[in-house]
Amino acid sequence: MESLFGFLDAQSQRRRRRTSSFESLKRLGHISPAVQSHLKHASVLDPVLCAGLLRARRLPSRPPQRRRRPHLGCMVSIAGLLALPAAESQQRNRFALLMSAAFLQGASIGPLAQLALHLDPRILVTAFIGTAIAFACFSAAAILAKRREYLYLGALLSSGLSILVWLQFAASIFGHSSSTFMFELYFGLLVFLGYMVFDTQEIIERAHHGDMDYIMHALTLFTDFVAVFVRVLIIMMKNASEKSEDERKRKKR
């Protein structure tokens, strides 16, 4: 009987410890209320930007010579957003530039999305949901971690990004191969998943130092989201095409 009471007491103590640890995670004592409000404003804008991204995929297909125009327009919108001061009087103009950048970014990856819809409509939805879950998990890990804990990743991620740039430069000269393409795909996915954690903690640190520009911070997180989404979509399309090719070979046999 005493052993039974001891077992029950141990179980109750474990439940209390789990409850207290969960409550400590929800308190976020290392983040001030002002910074928490700033993170809410920046995170609320990301679903709006993703809506513009998905809306742009319905644009009609364009000739090859016109497919670069949305990408250039997106760069112009981002440059205009960087040029405008973060004043209260310019917030409406900056928000308009932010939405135009999201829409044009969606238009630039529209042919890829249409190809995914032609291959299997479920691929686009699954890639988007998977990217959203990864974004939520990695951002939550950065928010719940100690301040500056993941800022050391900046140097490693910058080195990885420079490797991707040099690989693209070498491929433009010597030509692409399947091995280098797969390395760029998976290595780039790993790099931008790391940027989700790093950028979230950098935004928190900047907000603690008075930088409350939630529009620019939302653009940073949205850029990470799009980079991961495109790579996840390409990987799923490649796997689906290989699976369909294997099924065709089996039917021929």
Rank of each mutant, 00 (worst) to 15 (best):
Q105R: 11
Y214D: 06
D46F: 02
T220P: 03
C50L: 13
D224P: 01
L164A: 03
Y214K: 04
E88G: 11
R55S: 14
T131K: 01
A227H: 03
L190C: 12
R14S: 05
P121V: 12
Q168R: 14
Q168Y: 06
L45Y: 02
K252C: 08
Q105E: 14
R62L: 08
K26F: 05
C137K: 08
S20L: 14
M212F: 06
F103D: 01
R94W: 05
V165I: 15
A227P: 02
R253T: 12
V228H: 04
K26E: 10
S32T: 14
T223W: 04
P70V: 02
D9R: 12
R92L: 13
N93V: 10
E202H: 04
F183Q: 09
E184K: 14
A79S: 13
R55D: 11
I78Q: 10
P33D: 04
Q105S: 15
L4K: 09
M75I: 12
Y214W: 03
E2L: 11
S159G: 14
S108F: 14
A34R: 13
T19D: 12
P63Y: 09
S162I: 13
L151I: 05
F22M: 14
T223G: 13
R55E: 13
A227G: 04
V44P: 09
L153S: 09
P47K: 00
V191W: 00
A134V: 12
M236D: 07
Y195P: 00
L193H: 01
P111F: 11
M216H: 12
F22Q: 14
N239E: 13
K252Y: 12
